[in-house]
């Protein structure tokens, strides 16, 4: 149940990781996460290795541990769920410090904790090292549907404009003493959301006009591709490749 944030996670920098083309980084993240998810949870050593891979990338990119830790908060509801599992799970049970823990529950909790954390840190690293336009360009190159990427571009562009409008409305309401405590009081809030929708929509109409005025005729122009060198491909895919091999070994050994 986490809300989002209007400010993306980007950290400005010029590291090797920052400089890699967006589509390679998106592909690398995907590969890495698939490897992590496919790894049997009992292969604890493999997760140690994944953690070091992530640590290495974070180090190369100069993304501070604190920053990552703070952003990992999005995971908390699921961690809470994970920590409950040993308590509510079914037998067989093991005794631990006088508490009866479900064996399956403990394993499940570990799975969620380990895999979820690897995934979320990987995603944070992508977002931290890649400017949003490069992520969009990357999705384009990875052949995500054109309409999706185009809509995403507009969404990213107007996210702050609209959240700013929303924030101003809420401030205006708070200034007049409005602070909802239960859902039967949210009507005013929601009515302002209605106004926000109309504003967003009408802005959409004006943006469309501005596009037409500059020759838009139904399809977004595509701008020159970033050149991708073999070296980039190797750099981007080396560590995820390692993760895939690790996952394969772990599957054979523990699977």
């Amino acid at each position: 149940m986490s809300g989002g944030h209007a400010h993306a996670l980007h950290i400005h920098g010029h590291s090797v990781v920052h400089r890699l083309p967006g589509h390679l980084k998106v592909a690398a993240l995907f590969l890495f996460v698939v490897a992590v998810v496919a790894t049997p949870a009992r292969a604890v050593w493999a997760f140690g290795l994944y953690a070091s891979v992530l640590g290495l990338v974070a180090g190369l990119a100069g993304v501070p541990v604190r920053f990552i830790a703070r952003r990992m908060l999005v995971e908390v509801p699921f961690l809470a769920f994970a920590l409950l599992l040993p308590l509510v799970g079914e037998g067989p049970f093991l005794e631990f410090g006088g508490v009866r823990l479900s064996e399956a529950g403990v394993l499940a909790a570990w799975t969620i904790l380990a895999k979820g954390s690897c995934g979320v840190v990987g995603s944070i690293l992508l977002a931290a090292t890649t400017e949003i336009p490069n992520i969009l360009a990357g999705l384009n190159r990875l052949r995500a549907p054109k309409a999706i990427v185009a809509i995403a571009g507009f969404m990213v562009r107007y996210l702050e404009v609209i959240s700013g409008e929303m924030a101003r409305m809420r401030v205006a309401m708070a200034a007049r003493g409005y602070e909802p405590k239960a859902f039967w009081q949210v009507k005013a809030l929601a009515t302002s959301a209605g106004a926000l929708f109309i504003r967003s929509y009408e802005r959409g109409e004006r943006v469309y006009m501005a596009m037409v005025a500059r020759g838009y005729a139904g399809s977004m122009p595509t701008f020159g591709d970033v050149l991708t060198s073999t070296a980039d491909v190797v750099r981007a895919l080396a560590l995820p490749g390692l993760a895939v091999i690790t996952a394969a070994v772990a599957l054979v050994v523990s699977g």
């Binding site: 989002g4 571009g153 507009f154 959240s163 959409g204 109409e205 977004m220």
Partner: peptide, 22 residues
């Protein structure tokens, strides 16, 4: 396309809005 993008931004902002249930 621009309309959908603006509405997507609206939905995104709306999802950040926590409302009291009880």
């Amino acid at each position: 396309i621009p309309l959908a993008g603006l509405v997507a931004a609206f939905v995104f902002v709306l999802q950040m809005l926590n409302f009291p249930v009880l």
